[in-house]
């Protein structure tokens, strides 16, 4: 029984890493009032660039490249949405389409259809002092540094967002940008900060997929994980800790699904896989239906900021 729990916990942590980063990225961008449906595309770009970079440089540097690539995609989003007040959903969906087709083209013409050549994975950390032998704690052993970062970052992010002046300003920019402007602060700069940070986090999530979970970029990466990150953001009511818990919850559901499918194949006849796959989205819809207008979405979400408008 204990081994089963350990295995579940371990694969939950493995699967949740990328999801947590992407969900936090989405929270950061949307709390500042910029809709981010381009998470999927930013993750894909990050995953691709990290894998390609890691072919010729140490893997940690490759991860950094993935973050920069995600931020670069976000910069396009920011240029269109912040500088030119374009529709944020359109821009995000366009980035998704570009990343999907562009990734396929580059992958195929540079490395062939199946994926990049294998890279050195990020080194895995094992718990010291014999802690790796303690039941249950064992599950925390053997993960990359990114998994640990994903466990710590939501709390750091929470502190910044709710305890620091910068966090207050970021939240205000998403709720009432004109109030921020009257304090003499730049709405545009704050939004740029959030959008670029969100892109870097999404890129980090993608990089985690190709350097820690797998050891290459595969054709279908991230296979909808970016949209699941959006679901986690909504489910977590646009808060870092909420999104983190939602991401863990979705990841645990997935670990359970995969674990059941491999150990008890007959379970598929009782509970179809499709139901379990649909569950995160169904639950999010259900939560939205129950909460209705009290969904805690930032008030100025999706509204381009114009200095002159009121």
């Amino acid at each position: 029984m204990l081994e089963v729990l350990e295995a579940l916990l371990s694969s939950t942590l493995e699967y949740s890493t990328a999801l947590v980063f992407a969900a936090l990225g989405a929270v950061l961008s949307e709390r500042a009032g910029v809709v981010n449906v381009g998470v999927e595309g930013m993750m894909r770009t990050g995953a691709f660039c990290a894998a390609v970079a890691a072919l010729s440089m140490p893997t940690p540097l490759g991860v950094l490249m993935g973050m920069i690539a995600g931020a670069a995609m976000a910069a396009v989003h920011g240029y269109l949405c912040i500088r030119w007040r374009s529709d944020q959903v359109v821009s995000g969906m366009a980035l998704n389409l570009v990343a999907l087709a562009g990734g396929t083209y580059l992958l195929e013409s540079l490395y062939g259809p199946n994926g990049t050549p294998p890279i050195t994975q990020l080194s895995r950390w094992h718990l010291p002092f014999g802690l790796a032998e303690v039941p249950l704690l064992r599950a925390f052993s053997g993960h990359s540094v990114l998994t640990w970062l994903a466990l710590a970052l939501p709390f750091a992010f929470h502190w910044v967002l709710y305890r620091s002046p910068l966090g207050l300003r970021l939240r205000a920019v998403g709720e009432k940008p004109h109030a921020v402007a009257t304090l003499g602060l730049s709405v545009q700069n704050l939004r740029w900060l959030a959008v670029l940070g969100g892109g870097a986090l999404a890129g980090l999530g993608g990089a985690a997929l190709s350097t820690a979970v797998l050891d290459r970029f595969e054709q279908h990466t991230p296979a909808g994980l970016g949209f699941m990150a959006m679901a986690a953001m909504v489910f977590g009511r646009w808060t870092p800790r909420g999104a983190f818990l939602a991401a863990l919850f979705f990841a645990a559901g997935n670990a359970l699904r995969i674990g059941l499918a491999s150990s008890l194949p007959e379970i598929k006849d009782v509970v179809p896989q499709g139901f379990l796959l649909a569950l995160p989205y169904l639950l999010t819809l259900l939560l939205l239906a129950i909460q209705g207008q009290r969904t805690h979405a930032p008030a100025a979400l999706g509204v381009p900021y114009e200095q002159e408008s009121r």
């Binding site: 396009v76 240029y79 269109l80 030119w84 374009s86 529709d87 359109v90 821009s91 969906m93 366009a94 980035l95 998704n96 389409l97 570009v98 999907l100 087709a101 562009g102 083209y105």
Partner: peptide, 12 residues
């Protein structure tokens, strides 16, 4: 890819 980029440019 052409289509996606065209959409991106239309967004601007």
């Amino acid at each position: 890819l052409i289509q996606g980029l065209a959409l991106l440019f239309v967004a601007g």
